[in-house]
């Protein structure tokens, strides 16, 4: 079985992004870029499935600027076999991403697609579900445990009510939640090895022929409303008094 892992290059989760003063976007010049954390979990899961003998090839794909090759190389260093960059100089929205990935899926014919449940930049949580829908295959979103049994998979999903288990027929799409696994660290020799692994670059236009994009327009960026400065108390008595004064206890 082939596994396709779709990843996104995002501002590193440790960076506290700031809105530009003119409201035209957030300041991303010079900030550290990384693989979206959920997508790192997706790569790790694919590697573990392959190491368990249930997959024979892992292809990692991203849509993004040319520099996103760095994140693909990291994925290759983790252990993916080859990479595809769908190059797009402009930012695209979820539906276009899903259509572009559909093109790759149709070409690669994977038995399983794994991707992070959401990108931590736009926090949309849409592309996996959209891709599954366009592909007309089952989805298991927010997965914290995955068991592959030949042509089926048992997926445990983290949902509001607890842990839900569903069975999906392969080929299928899985989106990862935090507790699926802990991604491995990349070792230096693997980084060197990754430089020789194949990385194809194609233009996004080749993947979305005939697609009628209905973009949403983003009109303004603003900083969130700050909370009012609070007070520090010195004892439990003062805390209880403050809570009583507010009528909360």
């Amino acid at each position: 079985m082939k596994i396709l892992v779709a990843i996104k290059r995002v501002v590193d989760f440790n960076v506290r992004v700031q809105v530009k003063p003119d409201g035209s976007g957030v300041a991303t010049d010079g900030v550290k870029m990384s693989i979206n954390p959920f997508d790192e979990i997706a790569i790790e899961e694919a590697l573990r499935i392959k190491e368990a003998g249930k997959a024979d090839e892992i292809v990692v794909v991203t849509i993004g600027v040319n520099d996103a090759q760095q994140q693909l190389r990291t994925a290759l260093a983790m252990g993916a076999d080859r990479a595809i960059l769908v190059e797009s100089e402009s930012e695209i929205q979820s539906l276009k991403a899903a259509h572009s990935l559909l093109h790759i899926v149709e070409k690669e014919q994977p038995g399983l697609v794994i991707m992070g449940k959401q990108a931590i930049d736009d926090d949309n949580n849409q592309t996996p579900q959209m891709l599954a829908t366009l592909w007309k295959r089952p989805q298991a979103t927010f997965v914290s445990k995955l068991e592959i049994n030949e042509d089926k998979a048992l997926a445990t999903r983290e949902i509001d009510a607890g842990l839900e288990t569903i069975e999906i027929k392969l080929p299928a799409l899985v989106s990862t939640d935090l507790r699926l696994n802990e991604p491995r660290f990349v070792k230096l020799p693997d980084i060197m090895k990754a430089k020789r692994k194949p990385l194809d670059v194609i233009n996004i236009d080749e993947t979305v022929a005939g697609f009628d994009d209905k973009e949403l327009s983003i009109e303004n960026y603003e900083s969130p409303q700050p909370r009012q400065k609070g007070v520090m108390v010195d004892s439990v008595d003062e805390l209880v008094a403050a809570l009583k004064e507010k009528g909360l206890v």
């Binding site: 999903r157 949902i159 509001d160």
Partner: peptide, 23 residues
């Protein structure tokens, strides 16, 4: 925007050929 809505609604959006406005 619960796990239920987050799971289902993007599928609806894709079927309708629309981007979704999340959250």
């Amino acid at each position: 925007s619960t796990t239920f809505g987050k799971d289902v609604m993007p599928c609806v959006a894709a079927l309708l050929g629309q981007n979704q406005i999340s959250d």
